[in-house]
Structures are given as C-alpha cells and as structure tokens.
C-alpha cells in the first residue's frame, strides 16, 4: 500500500520492537514505542532492503510520527518526530485504553 491512507493523521500507532541484523532507519530509542501519526510524507523504497543493493526494494509510504519524550525515555516534556516506513508501524493495539 503506497497511497498513504493506512494511517491517517492522528492515528495512534506503535513501532515494531524489531532488531534486524541489517541496516534500518528505525532508531533503537524508538523501537516498540507508541506515537501519533502527524501525516504521510510520501512513498520511498524501503531503506532496509535497498541498503542490501537489491533492486527489488518495496516502495512504501513513510509517515511522520510524533512521540512524547515520556513514552521514549520515561521523562521529559518535549516531543520527537521520526519519519518511519509503513512496515515499521502497526496500529496501537491499546489505542482505546
């Protein structure tokens, strides 16, 4: 899916707690964390696959996702926004809590 409509702005998402043995653009500090979609940023080849020199990297939507410092570090009053490929994200399973 590349049209940017899977996670509309405001969607509560969670990053996968993945730890791949290769290049990735999901920093360790934001793995398995809850955030809110700011908006889609447009499609691009998935860096994880492209970095392996493969010509078959899937094109995915990238989303700007906003995280509260408290959810990343347990403290802090600021926010951090990251641009994350769709396959790094799932809808927050506890979004209604």
């Amino acid at each position: 899916m590349t049209d940017g409509d899977r996670f509309p702005p405001g969607t509560r998402v969670r990053t996968f707690p993945h730890d791949p043995p290769h290049h990735t653009r999901l920093p360790r500090y934001a793995r398995g964390k809850r955030g809110v979609v700011v908006e889609p940023e447009g499609p691009a080849e998935l860096a994880d696959v492209s970095a392996q020199g493969r010509g078959d990297a899937p094109v995915e939507q990238i989303y700007a996702v906003r995280f509260a410092a408290r959810d990343l570090w347990g403290e802090g009053d600021h926010h951090v926004v990251l641009d994350l490929w769709e396959s790094y994200l799932e809808e927050d399973p506890d979004r209604d809590r």
């Binding site: 653009r25 691009a44 990238i62 009053d77 926010h79 926004v81 990251l82 641009d83």
Partner: peptide, 15 residues
C-alpha cells in the same frame, strides 16, 4: 521558557 514546547525532528527518511 518552560512554557515553550520543544519538538525535535529526527530526519530518519527522505524528508
């Protein structure tokens, strides 16, 4: 001032 919200933009993709 403490009342100012700070947002840090970590450029992790194509933007």
């Amino acid at each position: 001032p403490g009342t100012v919200d700070i947002t840090v933009w970590d450029s992790s993709a194509e933007s």
